[in-house]
Structure formats: structure tokens, C-alpha cells
Design a binder for these strands. Structure first.
Lengths: 205, 205, 205, 205
DNA sequence: GATGAATGAGGGTTCATTCAT
DNA sequence: AATGAATGAACCCTCATTCAT
């Protein structure tokens, strides 16, 4: 059993190595220009293992997105369950989202590229994850409308999309443009995002 | 001279056919999955013509973007020159931008896909166009701050990026999601955008 | 008739422009990598004229070789007719040959490349010219044997080929290698060639 | 380890098949007209293999030349180390060179075609090999001058080039021209070469 | 005589995927 | 579990040649 476990965790490690390598390669040049050769080289494994753990190149890429968005969803759900008000929840979600992209721009770049890529054909699972993420934001916007802190004329579904798009694009723009102190840039940036979201949505007294 | 003109305009027509075909193919599947074979088939010309008018597949794609953004820039400049206030200019620009994407979602899809595609290597001309478009929005935001209608704490450069990203993503989301009356959807959508922009930026009384 | 003549000489000029341009392009990159596009561009004429004056790209190239070798043949025949001894004739021929290549290395490069190119399929005319050139050298070697100045054990046909190959290769090597004074190099080089030929063939006293 | 070896030797065999096929195809039609399609067909492998073992068509061709010249260099070095006199060394080298070309005219044809092909852009390694081969001949000519058996007025560098050019061109001419007994032709030919070299260089008593 | 737009077969190269070992 | 040699379809691009004007 110890052996079984060891084997499994070694397999998990290999799988993770492949995913990490794939993410870095895809982030650098995009999904289409990422090659399996380059990924296995980066991961330091042979070509065969990639097809032992995954059924195709698309499967690798989708695993990255599904797992990444999955973590976001989990966090969003925790925030939704704990935040005392919708406003708190929205701010926390947007901040977390921006932070995750900021910390892992490879993922952000891949996410934004695939989110609106024409003709993309990911699985049901992938589309479901996207919807779930948007739904969590939308739910807090609607809650805010009930609580009287979000303007009632807002279309919550529209707003959820706008938030995701805006956070992704501005974050990547900031990461790409800044040559200086990233940590400081990050704080300034999150402040902007928070301010923007607040004003766009808040009921004006 | 009439002859010269006729010849030239026929060549121009062929060139345009190629650009139109390329845009439609790229919008359907993305740049990487668009093939020159498919493009020339769609354009109804032979393969060689594509390389008679353009130096490469990338050159075709870039021509589409440069010309498309070029038209936007021209319109933005006209708006900037005529709008009585910064607020009017911003609303007009965002509305126009959204309308263009709405009417030509193929272009919008291509634009958003390439704008943040990792590793993309377009020319100086292309990058210059992007910067110019953002600068025109930024200039109106700064003008609004001077006029006292845009909140002074806003970072105009950040805001310009946010606007472009938000308009692109929400517009494409709307086009993709709506199965019903597009014209009506469009009006509702533009209303949302206008409202969103107003609240995000306006000085609250 | 004056008109006819003018037209003809203009046509001749265009033809010559094409041949000169073709020679320079072919010399730079070889026959296979020379493109008709590049040739007409260099000649400053349109693509159609190339096919008005020549039936194909191969026809252009062959015209260059046939005319070039033709001039060599004419000169060799003059030398053969006038030289008092076989030794004088051989020296004069080799010197002339080397000089021509030295002065027009584009032609030399093309000649050497095509002379032993495997699978080349030039016309009968071309092969005939080659044979004629070799025969003229061979005839002088045999004359020298009869006159007692060339070693009788030499195979004249073999020697003729050796001379052509050696002159071509060494000349091109010298042209390629010398960065300094070409005129001085030329004299030294011709001296070497003359010496080499003399010792290789002369009956030792 | 036997397994490792077997795998390696199978890979080596495939690589060699490709090189052999490429040499035969290139010798028949020249480098430019040789196609990768034809080469892999001749080798009996799929197209991808060519690019698994070599980085490009040029790489295949260069490998042939580098390996072929490499063997010549090795032999020349052995001759230089063992020959009692410069004259012996020179004769042996030229004989060996001629024999190699005679036995493998495909290689000779490729060599001569590429040696003076205009615009050829081989690697440093290739140029280095060429230089090394010429240097070995040149060294023996200079040794001969010191030993008093080669005429002192000879330019050894010039002579080395002349020898290579002459051997290549005459050998190929003989192979091409002879329809009869090749073995007998070979002997006669080598005799000519030996005689020619001797007289061209030897100090006349 | 002259133009240059158009053709299309064919070239070198890439790469996701398979499979014998 | 893991390797890496092998496959072959598909890609982008080139270029000699033709022909309507």
C-alpha cells in the first residue's frame, strides 16, 4: 500500500509537472503555437508520458483551465458564504480574481485568450465552469440590489461579464506595461479596480 | 487613364475580396486555425494571389486590424474635435466602438483575440495604432477631469484600457448569447454600456 | 526602314538588358535560386517581356552560356589561326580564358556551376559548344606533340579537360579569396597559371 | 545495454539510409532539384523522419559533405604522417582523392557542384572542412619545397586549389565519358593524374 | 510590343499522434 | 509506466508560366 501510494503520488507529480510546463509554454506563445514537444521538454519527460496522462493536447490545456477556474470557483463560493454584505463579497471576489491573475499571469493570459477565442471547442465541463464563475458574480450583484447597495437598473448578467472582462484586460495590461516595482503596482492596481467597481455599481446617496 | 483606373480598381477589388474572406475565416476559427487555403477558397481566387497582394498570412491579418483600427481612430478623432464636452465625447466613442463591434463581430472577435494573445508579434504600425486608440480615450478622460466631470482620482490610462476591454468583452458576450432580436438587444446593450461608463467615471454630486 | 531598324535595335537592347540582369542574378545565387521576378526587376522591365524574348527561364540561361562560350570559341579560333607555335597558342588560350573569367566572374561562376551540374539538361547547341571549346584546346596539345614541345605521353583529351577545370576553379578561388588589389592579384595569378601549364605539359630538356 | 545499443543502431541505420538516399538523389539532379519527398521515398521512410534526424534539407546535404570530406581528411592525415617524402604524400593523396571520386561519383558530383556554387551558405563546420583539406595538400607542397622536390616558385596555396579542381573535373569527365571498361579506365586515368601532378610540380633536373 | 494580375502545382517544414519495445 | 522513433496530413509559401487587356 505504501508502494501504491508512492506510485500514485509520483504519477501525480508527473501529471503536475506536465500541467505546469504546459501552462508556461502556452502562456508564452498561445495554445496553437505551443507544441507537445516543447511541453514535454520543459517538463523533462518523454513524449509518451504526455499521452499516458492525457488523451490529447487539448485535454492538457483544458485541464489547466478547468482546475484553475475550479479553484477560483471554490474561493468565490467561500467568499459568498462568509461575506456579510454583497458589496463586501463583490470587492473580495474582484480583488481575489485580480490577485490570482497578477500572481499567475501565465494562467491569466491563457484564460483571456481562450475565453473569447472564436471557434473554440472546449468541453461541456469547461463551459459549465465559466458559467458557474459568472453566476457567482451575478448572484452577488443581485443580492446587492436586494440589499439596496447596487443600483437597481443594472443588468446583473451584463455586469458580471463586464467585471470579468475588465479585470482580465486591465490586469494583463498592467503586468505587460510595468517594468518597475510589481508589488507596488499591484497595490495601486487593486485600488483602481476596487474604486472602479464601487462607482460603477454603487447606489449614489 | 480610364484604363489605368479600371485595372487598379480591379486589383483593389481582389485585394478587398481577400481581406473580407480572411476576416470571415479568422473570425470563425481564430488566426492560428485559419488557413490560407480556406481564405483563398472563400475569396474565390487562387492561392498565389494571396501572396501577390500580401507578403504573408500575418500580413493579411495585420492589414485587417490596421485598417479596422484606423477607421476607428479616424472616427474617434472626429468625435474628439466636435464633442462639446468630454462626457459627450466619451459616450460617443464608447457607443461608436460598441456599435462597430456589434455590426462587425468578426472584426471584434479577431481584435479581442489578438489584443491579448500571448507572444503575438505584430509590427510597429500595429502597436502604434493600438496606442493611438487608447490615447484618444485617455485624452478625453483627462479633459473630463479638467472640466470637472470625471472623478479626479481616476487613472486615465488605466481607465482607457478598462473601457476597451469591457466594451469588447461584453459586446461579444451579448452577440454570442442572444438568439433573439439583435436590433433590440443592441439598443439595450448600448444603454447598459452608456450607464456603466457614466457611473464609473462621473463625479457624484 | 529607319523605324524598323530603331525598333529592332531597341528590341536588341531590351534583350541584352535581360541577359545582363539574368547573368548577375544567376551569378549571385545560382540558376535554381534565380527567379524570373528578380531578373525582370533587375532589368527594369515587366514580366511579360521576358517571355516575349525568351521561351523559358532555361532559355535565358542557355542564351547566356551559348553566347559567352561562343565568344570564347571565336577568340580561340583566332588564336589557333595566328599563333606561331602550339605552345604560344596554349598559353594565349589559357590566359584569355582566365582573363575572361577574371573580368566577368558572374559568367565564370555560372559556367562552372553548370558545367558539372548533375542532371542538367541543356540543349544540343550547348553541349556542342562545350565540345568545340575542348576540341580547340585538345588540337593545340596534339599540335604541340607533333611539334615536339608537348610531352608525347600526354592524353590530349584528358589534358584539355584538366586545363578548363583548373583554370575555372583556381580563378574563382582567387576572386573569392582576394580582398586586396585585384589588378595585381590578376597578374600574379596569370603568371601562376602560365607556369603551371608550361611545366605540366612541356617536354623537359 | 544490448537493448540500448539495438535501439541506437536502428536509429543510426535509419539516419544512414537517409544520407545514402539523399546522396543518390542529389547526385542525380543536383541539390536544388533534389526534393525531400524523393529522398524519403528512396530511403523508404516517411517524410517526418527526415526532420526527426536532420533540421533541414540543407542539413542533410551538409552532413553528407562534412562526413565525406571528414573521411578524406582522416586519410590525408594518415598519408601525411606516414609518407617518407612529400612527393610520395602528394601522389598518394591525389590518387586516393581520385579513387574516392571514381568509386563514389555521386559524392564527387555533389562536391564539385557545391564547392563553387554561387551564394551557397554552408556552415562554419563545412567551410572549416574545406580549408582543412586544402591545408593538408598545401602542407605537403611546402614540405616538398623544403625537401627540394617541388619547384620553389610555386604558390602552394594556389597549387592546392588547382589540384582539387583538376582532379574533380577530370574524374567526373572520365566517368561521364566512358561507356566501356571502368576498371581499366580508372587505371589509365590515375596514371594520367599522377603524371600530370608530377610534371607540374617537380623540380626539373 | 508590353503589362502585371492571376494561376496552381509543388516545395520545405511542422506537429499531434501512434506504437513497438 | 515509460521511451522515442516513426507517421503523414496539413501548413505556409514560391515561382515558372499564361493571358486578358
Amino acid at each position: 500500500m505504501a508502494r501504491q501510494k508512492a506510485r500514485t503520488s509520483k504519477a501525480d507529480a508527473t501529471r503536475r509537472q506536465l500541467l505546469d510546463a504546459a501552462l508556461s509554454v502556452i502562456a508564452a506563445r498561445g495554445y496553437s503555437e505551443a507544441t507537445v514537444d516543447r511541453i514535454v521538454e520543459e517538463a523533462g519527460v518523454s513524449k509518451g508520458v504526455a499521452y499516458y496522462y492525457f488523451s490529447s493536447k487539448a485535454d492538457i490545456a483544458e485541464s489547466i483551465l478547468v482546475e484553475g477556474i475550479g479553484e477560483l470557483i471554490t474561493s468565490f463560493e467561500a467568499i459568498a458564504a462568509e461575506a456579510p454584505t454583497a458589496t463586501d463579497a463583490l470587492i473580495a471576489m474582484v480583488e481575489l480574481f485580480a490577485s490570482v491573475i497578477f500572481e499567475n499571469d501565465a494562467f491569466g493570459r491563457f484564460f483571456v485568450a481562450e475565453l473569447w477565442r472564436p471557434g473554440r471547442a472546449w468541453s461541456e465541463a469547461m463551459r459549465g465552469h465559466e458559467q458557474r464563475l459568472l453566476a457567482l458574480l451575478q448572484a452577488q450583484l443581485e443580492r446587492g440590489q436586494r440589499e439596496g447597495t447596487v443600483r437597481p437598473e443594472i443588468d446583473a448578467a451584463f455586469e458580471a461579464v463586464a467585471l470579468v472582462g475588465m479585470v482580465l484586460t486591465t490586469t494583463l495590461y498592467y503586468i505587460g506595461g510595468e517594468g518597475g516595482d510589481l508589488a507596488e503596482a499591484r497595490d495601486r492596481f487593486v485600488e483602481h479596480i476596487r474604486d472602479f467597481v464601487h462607482h460603477a455599481n454603487a447606489v449614489t446617496p
